[in-house]
Design a protein around this nucleic acid. Structure first.
Lengths: 175, 175
DNA sequence: GGGAATTTTTAGCGATCACTAAATAAGAGC
DNA sequence: GCTCTTATTTAGTGATCGCTAAAAATTCCC
């Protein structure tokens, strides 16, 4: 439910109804709504998170590998109609500051994998802007998936996005 | 306030306190919280919306013009610490479905301007994917601005994003 | 089976949500 | 100044929010 509707739009009443328990049981088990949310994020990371490392290993060419990441994200974020977008990325924008902070901490892990990959393949002064570009694009893809756009559409613009990476890594190799 | 915190996180109590009136006055003037929100969006469009048409007219080269749009967005979305990101783009993701729908209607206007510009400069089969790419990027930029990222960072990845446009419009011109 | 520990529920809590009927105050016209 | 109209406030409404003290039910161990 948190994935489908975000932290703020899901109330304890919704959660207890879905779990078929009463509020004190939820609090006994998870401590708070936020505690349950953290558990849900953890579970998402373990079971449904985009396998970034694996995808980046699919091609020796960094531009192609990162484009594959975009395409995989586009497909991943649209594959389940009940759970569109990236739960973590979307939760980073929760109205509740604590929920947003928790999600950001989880998000840092994925970003680090991508960062390390880019460090290993680009010239030092290009690393930050490539990383930012990749993260901004993933953010946009997740959001568009949530808004209901099709996989086809998102894959299409992911391929376009790959063009920028080609140029950047070519410049890094030449520099 | 709606810009800074979104529709859902701002309550009628916050609004009446800021306007120094009591709730029935707000309802007398605007009909509902949503009514006030629409007015705020309208005001935003008239006073603070990215001047898309003007920016696209800054360069005869479409790739450069659209890159200028990204750069302008990056600067625009970060210029006021109290009002980060694009109010309309962010409101499209409101928890309240009516608020989100109203914001989407406003968003269509900006998208149409960009769409028409791309139709005039790209080959027909590339139009949709370029447009989607541009919109996904703008979405990501707005979101990152809201998350507190610097103008510098966002301008940097906007320039990277422009690389993809160069490739696309070169292909369109060749095709 | 009985007692203690654990789990779950009942029955709320104080706060906030968007909104409103009725009363009061302010403004306009004579 | 008086009366009528308009604007604003007072004093709530019913619903939902995240959460909890106390009571009841269930489980575990002897």
């Amino acid at each position: 439910m948190f994935h489908a509707r975000g932290y703020d739009a899901v109330g304890v009443a919704d959660l207890t109804a879905a779990l078929d328990i009463k509020p004190p049981s939820l609090y006994a088990a998870y401590g708070s709504k936020l505690g349950l949310f953290e558990r849900a994020l953890q579970s998402y990371v373990e079971t449904d998170f985009l396998p970034v490392g694996e995808i980046l290993a699919t091609d020796a060419d960094p531009a192609r590998a990162l484009t594959n990441l975009f395409v995989a994200a586009a497909r991943h974020y649209t594959r389940n109609p009940e759970r569109r977008g990236c739960m973590i990325t979307e939760a980073m924008r929760a109205d509740d500051a604590e929920a947003a902070a928790v999600a950001s901490a989880f998000g840092e892990r994925g970003s680090k994998i991508i960062h390390d990959y880019i460090v290993a393949h680009a010239s030092p002064e290009a690393v930050d802007r490539i990383l930012d570009y990749v993260l901004v694009n993933l953010r946009g893809l997740s959001s568009f998936a949530c808004l209901g756009h099709t996989a086809e559409k998102l894959v299409g613009c992911s391929e376009v996005a790959g063009g920028a990476l080609k140029a950047e890594f070519a410049a890094s190799a030449a520099g």
